[in-house]
Design a protein around this nucleic acid. Sequence first.
DNA 1: TTAATATATGAACAGATATTCATATGAAAG
DNA 2: CTTTCATATGAATATCTGTTCATATATTAA
Lengths: 121, 121
Amino acid sequence: MIESEKNIEKCDYLCIHEDNINTVKETMPNDETLYDLAELFKVFGDSTRIKILYALFEAELCVCDISQLLNVSQTAVSHQLRILKTNKLVKFRKEGKNVYYSLADDHVCSIINQGLDHINE
Amino acid sequence: MIESEKNIEKCDYLCIHEDNINTVKETMPNDETLYDLAELFKVFGDSTRIKILYALFEAELCVCDISQLLNVSQTAVSHQLRILKTNKLVKFRKEGKNVYYSLADDHVCSIINQGLDHINE
DNA sequence: TTAATATATGAACAGATATTCATATGAAAG
DNA sequence: CTTTCATATGAATATCTGTTCATATATTAA
């Protein structure tokens, strides 16, 4: 028996609260859902992306607008927009040479606003 | 003049939508707030931490409980709890050798539930 | 006091990630 | 059709992050 197993076994007998654990196990979403959830929040967890999303609260913007507004290179903005697109947080429409991005739906606003509430307390 | 500056200047004259940019600039929170916001979401953006938080939806749990429940080493759980503590997402109380953790406030639930809503659409 | 146990913490390492650079694509203008 | 411009993308790099390992701390029991 390796050391780590020994520790877990000790713990089993002495400090585990079985009732609590079983209750929680029953109500927790499955691993995949929680993984996806973490992936979603990871997308919000970068200041460039948050700035892009917040910028799109007010208006539809093209890549160049965003780049200048945030003072971030066009390339970096494009890369981040791709991530936002992949995660269905923004949508876009093409018009000539420009591509206009906007928020995909209201969830984006509400998630960000919830976060702001937490910060401003 | 270096290449990148030339590009920005071209862009200034040709594709920037001044009105949109000004509107957005007025309503955007300051950089520090947006940075903090990203930091907050970064904390939610890890599956181990999300699992810990979700586990605490149902019940107060000690480190050992969490470790067994999630099948993650005690050390890893401790490290992640520290991050959650630092960001005021969990609180704790000591009782003998055990330390019991629970959610710091309702924001945590609502942020996570908002995220779940987005995923399940 | 000493041993056992629950939790915490620092250092190290491996894997992930954001930006930059160079370049490609695609649309409009000349 | 060639040039210009807006955007996209792949590769490279530097930084960040999560886990593990070893060990420290603190509490209880013997």
